Simulated assay, not measured.
Amino acid sequence: MAATDLDKASTERAVATSVDPAEVPSAAWGWSGESRKTFRIAGWVVVVALLGMTIGNHQGHVEDIFLISLAGLMALIMIVDSLTQRMPK
């Protein structure tokens, strides 16, 4: 007999999470939360991309000031976040 939505197959594992699937729908299929490492890598990629945009044929350097300051702000936020994450609570 094939498994249906109402009759679970005996080979399926129950997902044990401490998150209520009603609040977080993705918890029902086994994933819930954030990947800090992925967000940090993406943040550093964005910082490098912003600094890479300063290379070009700019007549005035107002764009460069905004790009460098935004990249510096993002880098500062990520550094503070990584330092505060290491501190014991």
Rank of each mutant, 00 (worst) to 15 (best):
V24F: 09
A75N: 04
M87A: 12
Q59F: 14
K8Y: 04
S69E: 11
E63V: 05
V24K: 04
T38S: 14
M1F: 01
G30M: 07
V80F: 01
V19H: 06
G30W: 03
K89C: 05
F39I: 10
D64F: 03
L76N: 11
E63D: 03
D7Q: 08
S32E: 11
A3T: 07
A2T: 06
R86G: 05
G72P: 06
D64E: 11
I79L: 08
Q59H: 15
T17Y: 05
P88C: 00
R40Q: 12
G56D: 04
D5T: 10
A22Y: 12
A75G: 08
P25C: 02
T54A: 12
A16W: 04
E12G: 12
G30N: 04
I79D: 01
F39V: 13
K89Y: 00
I68R: 07
V47Q: 13
P25M: 08
G56R: 10
V80T: 04
T11G: 05
G60S: 14
G60P: 07
S82I: 07
K37D: 11
A9T: 12
V15S: 10
G60E: 07
T4V: 01
H61Q: 10
A49T: 11
A14C: 09
V80M: 05
G33C: 07
I77H: 06
L51S: 12
S10C: 03
S26H: 03
L50K: 02
R86K: 13
P25Y: 03
L70C: 11
D20N: 15
P25Q: 02
S18N: 06
M87V: 12
R36M: 06
Q59A: 14
M87H: 07
A71L: 02
M53K: 01
P21Y: 05
G52A: 15
S18Y: 01
V62Y: 01
T38H: 12
M78T: 03
T84I: 04
L67E: 03
S32C: 08
H58M: 14
F39S: 15
D64T: 13
K89N: 06
V62P: 04
M1R: 07
G56C: 06
I77Q: 09
A75K: 00
L70M: 13
M74H: 03
D20F: 15
V62M: 07
I79M: 09
W29V: 10
G72R: 03
L50G: 10
I65P: 05
